[in-house]
């Protein structure tokens, strides 16, 4: 898979469920359209039981009710489906096509949990991680992988008590590196802090370490893609199950 080429910018907005990513994207769209032509690729998980998905991010996009803005916004809901490799590559092609067809900004919105979702975020040129207060605890180990990808950290729901504590916790946990992302506090509900966001996003520099983390995800993804795209992949799987082919031998045959 080739890196995205084009004039525009691809950003990912990611973070745990319920921190207000969709509302934040809506707030951003209100401030970007109609001056900017923006596409949102909203990624939601597929149910592992049925293979179906309920894609509800659109409901949060009140900006689509405004006819003067809706025409410069494209929203596409995407389910992760079963594979952790296929969807990120589809999103990559989608983003490339959108950039090539006049979209200046592509926003990939995805939950920052699970390999498929993190890989969807890793496609972007810049990654914004959203956090929020009242999530029960300080910085969990599970978030470490996400934080290392962040070029900007947004603490949403600044109207709620506890937002300052989250900012402090994040500052503390990131202070051990000298390459830590900027942390800002906003409220998608009240609009507090949102007016500065568009300019910040367009001027956002990628951190050296997040770039490395992102490329790591991309490399893993490309590698997995290479493996699963091998025409013998299924046959080798059968031989592992039926003939006791070792994993090392299987890898050798597939590479």
């Amino acid at each position: 898979m080739e890196p995205i080429r084009g004039e525009g910018l691809v950003i990912a907005i990611t973070g745990p469920p319920g921190v207000g990513k969709s509302c934040l994207v809506d707030g951003l769209l209100h401030r970007l359209a109609p001056e900017h032509i923006v596409a949102v690729l909203a990624v939601d998980p597929t149910s592992p039981l049925s293979g179906g998905a309920l894609l509800g991010d659109r409901i949060r996009f009140s900006v689509l009710d405004d006819d003067s803005k809706a025409d410069s916004i494209y929203v596409r809901s995407i389910a992760t489906r079963s594979s952790s490799g296929a969807v990120p590559s589809i999103i990559q092609s989608l983003a490339s096509h959108l950039l090539g067809n006049g979209f200046g900004l592509v926003i990939i919105e995805t939950v920052g949990a699970g390999q498929a979702e993190i890989r969807c975020a890793a496609i972007a040129d810049r990654i914004i991680v959203v956090e929020g207060p009242a999530r029960g605890d300080g910085i969990q180990a599970e978030k470490a992988g996400l934080l290392e990808l962040a070029d900007l950290l947004i603490v949403n729901k600044s109207d709620l008590p506890g937002a300052d504590k989250v900012v402090n916790d994040l500052t503390m946990s990131l202070s051990i590196t000298d390459d830590s992302p900027e942390i800002i506090k906003v409220s998608a509900l009240t609009g507090d802090g949102l007016d500065q966001l568009p300019a910040m996003i367009f001027a956002l520099e990628s951190r050296v370490s997040s770039q490395r983390a992102r490329n790591r995800q991309r490399l893993l993804m490309a590698h997995e893609h290479l493996l699963t795209a091998n025409p013998n992949f299924e046959a080798i799987l059968d031989r592992i199950s039926q003939e006791g082919l070792s994993l090392a031998q299987a890898l050798e045959e597939l590479s």
């Binding site: 149910s47 049925s50 179906g52 998905a53 894609l55 509800g56 659109r58 809901s77």
Partner: peptide
């Protein structure tokens, strides 16, 4: 209905 269709394996987009 949206839930039932999802459980039936389809991708459902609810408009609100």
């Amino acid at each position: 209905v949206a839930r039932a269709l999802r459980d039936g394996g389809h991708e459902v987009i609810y408009t609100g």
